[in-house]
Nucleic acid binder design. Structure first.
Length: 477
RNA sequence: CGGGGAGUAGCGCAGUUGGUAGCGCACCUGCUUUGGGAGCAGGAGGCCGCGGGUUCAAGUCCCGCCUCCCCGACCA
């Protein structure tokens, strides 16, 4: 029997493919209010794995979790000029409560620099209190004009870390530590998505930050996705919220702050970096279900053998699940697990069992192979490692092949039709006949500078001159 | 917020010159099935996006609004 198309092909219509995956893999759907999102249980189980992996890295970096209020006095946002300018257009403002108009409107947090800053000011008195690092897992609201599930929703889930330091150097070092040890490490080693790290341009940086560092990845359609950012906030918020401390010499000083966040947008990265025409492909280290054992037909001991196999897989530490449903056909169940991107599927049926073997199906390559039952547990471990490495290698190859070095804004724009362009900073800084710089012209044509790097790919200094850097140019989500 | 599409059963869609709504999948029941989205038979399911209007009569015509999708401007 020929396999019917379950999804719109990526090549036919990538955005439609994305919508199809969200629905068929039971990840998420829209809520009744524009821009809101319902994350379904399977999608949320993946998010919980994202949270667990990020959370352990955040704690290893010395931050502790806390929780701050959803509702923030509107006046807090007015204190920092760039912050208010950047966030005003997307604030949700509550004007009524308890049946009355409020004396001071409150905003639903779009980010928490202001409210957390106001408490850091209370908690920090001395250089001995520094550095101070808190993180919160929360929902935030930014009124969006054009929502897309997981990629850009009015309400989304994220973690936001906020730290205070005695010196600019310490804040700088911590922002980069989060960028590398939390975000890049998670993205590359768990999510299996290769990322370019670099500095945002002034135009792209966070409202109120002095420097924004970012991890950017290429999706399968060649567009870029910003997956996590780490900001150096300088002393701007400290000055307006009074986050001050006495240094070792007894002098009053403003603390140097950082903030950093990664959101449910990472779910979009997972889908678009790895998914294929059969659905999602979840890297094994992230997968909430790493192995599904499918009972082909509950005859001749297949059910019992599958049950025992799941038990031994779980005993060996794998996240395994049994699918012994008899009310759905074999094909239906196989397709469903492929849509959900489970890395390994083991089919247990009477035919193979008669010869002491099972069929092992790899989601990354869509291959099937018989394997003796006694070797399965060891074979699963090996296969999961291969899948993890294979997905990263495939995504890296795809990105490298989709990235071209160019020398002009025009060439960069041409390259962004299918991928990334590496453009010398000198070409960005140059003005055209209308006096427009390269970034303005890129933006006008629908592209943007994702990050600035040194030509060798390393991170520039905070104030390193554009002329000596390379711009990663792409169309972005 | 600009430009372009579209809202009819859970999902995808058809619905002619206006005459009171249909198809596929999914769902329910029964039987037979289960090695790649099973078959047969029977059944249930509708504020036709919302609000006005025209008309004896509106899914269909007119006006207003809302929502969703795509492409731009803004963002995680």
């Amino acid at each position: 029997m020929a396999k019917p198309d379950v999804l719109t092909a990526q090549a036919a219509d990538f955005p439609q493919w994305y919508q199809d995956v969200l629905a068929k893999a039971e990840l998420a759907e829209s809520g009744p209010v524009r821009g809101t999102m319902v994350i379904r249980p399977y999608g949320y189980s993946i998010w919980e794995r994202v949270q667990a992996e990020l959370d352990s890295r955040i704690k290893a970096a010395g931050a502790r979790n806390a929780y701050f209020p959803l509702l923030i006095p509107e006046s807090y946002f007015r204190r920092e000029a760039e912050h208010v300018e950047g966030f005003s257009p997307e604030l949700a403002v509550v004007t009524h409560g308890g049946g009355k108009e409020l004396e001071e409107p409150v905003v639903v947090r779009p980010t928490s620099e202001t409210i957390i800053g106001s408490f850091l000011a209370k908690w920090i008195q001395s250089y001995r209190d520094l550095p101070m690092a808190v993180n919160q897992w929360a929902n935030v609201v930014r009124w969006e004009l054009r929502p897309r599930l997981f990629l850009r929703t009015t309400e989304f889930l994220w973690q936001e870390g906020h730290t205070a330091h005695a010196t600019r150097e310490d804040a700088h070092g911590y922002a980069l530590r989060i960028l590398h040890d939390v975000y890049r490490d998670f993205m590359v080693n768990v999510l299996a998505v290769p990322v370019l790290v670099g500095r945002k341009t002034e135009r792209e940086r966070f409202a109120g930050a002095t420097t924004t560092w970012s991890c950017e990845a290429m999706m399968r359609d060649g567009k870029a996705l910003q997956m996590g950012t780490s900001h150096e906030l300088g002393q701007g918020f400290s000055k307006v919220f009074g986050i001050d401390f006495l240094d070792e010499g007894g002098r009053q000083q403003h603390a140097w702050l950082t903030s950093w966040g990664a959101s449910t947008r990472l779910m979009g990265a997972l889908i678009m970096a790895h998914g294929d025409d059969n659905g999602l492909r979840v890297p094994p280290r992230l997968a909430p279900v790493q192995v599904v054992v499918l009972v082909v037909k509950a005859e001749d001991g297949a059910g019992e053998a599958a049950d025992a196999l799941v038990a031994s897989l779980k005993g060996a530490g794998y996240r395994a699940e049994l699918d012994a449903r008899t009310d759905l056909s074999f094909g239906r169940r196989a397709v469903n697990w492929e849509l959900k991107g489970v890395p390994l599927r083991i089919e247990v049926g009477p035919r193979d069992l008669a010869s002491g073997s099972v069929v092992v199906c790899r989601r990354d390559l869509n291959t099937k192979a018989a394997m003796p039952l006694v070797q399965v547990v060891a074979g699963v471990g090996r296969a999961l490692e291969e899948i993890q490495a294979g997905l990263l290698a495939e995504a890296t190859r795809r990105r490298d092949e989709g990235t071209v070095a160019v020398t002009s804004v025009e060439e960069a724009l041409e390259a962004t039709r299918s991928g990334f362009a590496m453009l010398p900073g000198t070409a960005v800084a140059g003005l055209d006949r209308q006096g427009q710089d390269g970034e303005t012209r890129l933006n006008a044509a629908g592209a943007s500078i994702r990050v600035l790097q040194r030509p060798d790919g390393s991170l520039p200094e905070t104030d390193e001159d554009l002329d000596r850097l390379s711009a990663v140019v792409a169309r972005a989500y």
